[in-house]
């Protein structure tokens, strides 16, 4: 495959494998991250997410397969174009916030003006702490500093490995906002997580990995569509009686989920409701949460593999 055909992708991963000893950590993983999208790399702990990311970062070499970053093979300059927030994060404890950011930026071959650093600190509400040492700060604050370090050199591609782990709800929201801002600035973002609900909120497309192999890959909406249960969520008033084609129903918070048999489409139920002149305030095609999809697939695969 020539480099030209890849030039539009932020990341192209081509059939990468990684084995440690007898343990295969990543097996036949391929995906493409388009420019300007938020891409989710999801899977449970130990699925191979971090290893995949490290191979993308050229920190470890794949046993076979290729990785193209921003249309090119990994080179000397590539690291400067990527902002990487590792899952295992840490900073020099004795360094001040300003010195940390300045040094880390210089390792990306970028000299950042103090005003720019202060501006960014201001943006996340950390300006008063700029001369504090890292060891004097709370874990959450340290993590925000780490995030600033990740994006200080204005990278075209941002890779965040479990960015929300260890953050309190306030900082989680702050970070989500910052990630959305990055997307608005046209940056490509990959983030890995084992918390599926965050993917649903942020990601355009995703790659789901379990035990080193692909489980799901594609557009979030398409995946949900594909794995939707044949069910509908209905909120109604009064008694609607029995509905034809419904095998089971489950009372949820504020609505009822009706499970349909194979021959019945949601439209059939809607028709029945109209015929019954029921007072319906909500009618929705039942889409499972990503978490449910994962449990379903991983559960099957997991049993099958073992």
């Amino acid at each position: 495959m020539s480099n030209k055909t890849l030039s539009n992708a932020a990341v192209q991963v081509n059939k990468i494998y990684k084995t440690y000893g007898k343990k295969t950590v990543v097996s036949d993983v391929s995906f493409t991250v388009e420019k300007g999208e938020i891409f989710g790399l999801i899977g449970p702990n130990g699925a191979g997410k971090t290893t995949t990311i490290r191979m993308m970062m050229d920190i470890i070499k794949p046993d076979s397969g290729e990785v193209y970053i921003l249309g090119e093979k990994f080179g000397e300059e590539t690291k400067n174009k990527i902002g990487y927030l590792p899952e295992e994060r840490g900073l020099y404890k004795k360094q001040t916030v300003m010195d940390t950011i300045r040094y880390m930026a210089s390792l990306k071959s970028v000299t950042v003006a103090d005003e720019r650093i202060e501006e960014m600190l201001q943006h996340v509400g950390m300006l008063p702490h700029k001369n504090k040492k890292i060891e004097e700060m709370s874990r959450g604050m340290g993590q925000l500093i780490q995030f600033l370090v990740t994006i200080i050199h204005d990278p075209a591609l941002v890779i965040l490995d479990e960015p929300f782990s260890g953050l309190d709800p306030v900082n989680t929201e702050l970070l989500k906002g910052l990630i959305k801002e990055l997307k608005e600035q046209g940056k490509s973002i990959i983030f890995s997580t084992h918390q599926m609900n965050q993917v649903e909120e942020l990601c355009d497309r995703l790659f789901m990995i379990n035990k080193g192999s692909k489980v799901l890959y594609g557009n979030l909406d398409d995946i949900k569509q594909k794995y939707r249960d044949n069910s509908v969520f209905i909120t109604y008033e009064g008694n609607i009686g029995a509905l034809k084609g419904v095998t089971d129903s489950r009372q949820k918070d504020g609505y009822t989920e009706f499970f349909l048999d194979n021959k019945t489409a949601p439209q059939d139920i809607l028709q029945q409701l109209i015929d019954k002149r029921a007072t319906v305030t909500r009618f929705e095609i039942g889409t499972p949460s990503l978490h449910e999809i994962f449990i379903r697939i991983a559960g099957i695969n997991g049993d099958g593999n073992e």
């Binding site: 920190i59 690291k79 994060r89 840490g90 900073l91 020099y92 404890k93 880390m104 390792l107 990306k108």
Partner: peptide
């Protein structure tokens, strides 16, 4: 302190 991975992502 896990600074290592940050460093290796740059150099």
């Amino acid at each position: 302190n896990r600074v290592m991975e940050i460093l290796l992502s740059s150099v």
